[in-house]
Amino acid sequence: MFTFMPEQASEWAPYVDWLNDYITNISVFCILGITAVMLYFAIRYRRRGPDDVTPYITHSASLETAWTVVPTVICFFVFYYGFESYHEMRNPPANAMEVNVTGVKWRWDFEYSNGKRTTNELVVPIGRAVKLIMRSQDTTHSFFIPAMRVKEDVLSTVYSYLWFTPTKLGEYHIFCAEYCGLQHSGMLGKLRVVSEGEFGDYLYDRQDPEAVELPPAELGKLKFAEKGCTACHSIDGSKGLGPSLKGVFGGDHVMSDGSVVKADENYIRESIVYSQKKIVKGFEGIVMPAFEGQLSEAEVNGLIAYLKTL
């Protein structure tokens, strides 16, 4: 009842819509029911004159308990369904296809794992989980695809992410949902969901060499050698001046203060750019240079992509 949700084009859109319907139906039922009772009372007991006799009723413990408990129970259910669906939204599968997204006033830049770059157009194959790793170059934006029912703010301080599995071919709006100034409403992108085959052609389309640069992981490999990371870090597990970076991504790392940190994009970025913020246990004596200001945004992303392959 009363749904005006856009097309369902992702795997969980039907679930979100089911939940939305569930809440809406309860709501409409309550609104209409309570309003009907109120109007009935207002008409049925309409004032006939100043001397109308009315009863003296002040409270009813049983009624009041009932209408406290029932909404509480309903609320628990709604919370739980909302939590359940959202939990999935926040936990992308390990094999998801990753795309880097950069929000820039006022456009969206996309970068695929093979180095292909596009602006305001994101193309993904149908049926494959896609994880977007997002960062802003200026103010806060928010990445929103109504047809996929996903939204997440894009910050300039940390990577944020979202993921979805497209289930329907077509073209969909990408909006910026966080106010970002003059052309906020013009920060529009297009999501194209295409077949696996078409996606392959798109990704490896070398017609337009301008659009294709070194894939991030390769750029990262290059920089890893160029910037002298190899001097301290091995990639085969052997210990050097610094810890080996074999399998560094995704693992739990113990810091000098005893805390355990999961190595995600944000941690790796911090380890490179502000290396002194967190020190790995056992390496307190050796100082890794901070690379703040010495690496471009693309180079940092490239290094992260490269470390993921180790």
Binding site: V16, I26, S27, F83
Partner: peptide, 26 residues
């Protein structure tokens, strides 16, 4: 009472995580 019922129940749509991801900032 009527308007506040609508305000309150649509607040539930927004308090629920799964649906708020869609509704937030719209």
């Amino acid at each position: 009472v009527f308007l506040f019922l609508i305000a309150g129940t649509t607040g539930v749509h927004l308090a629920t995580l799964g649906t708020d991801a869609h509704y937030h900032d719209t």
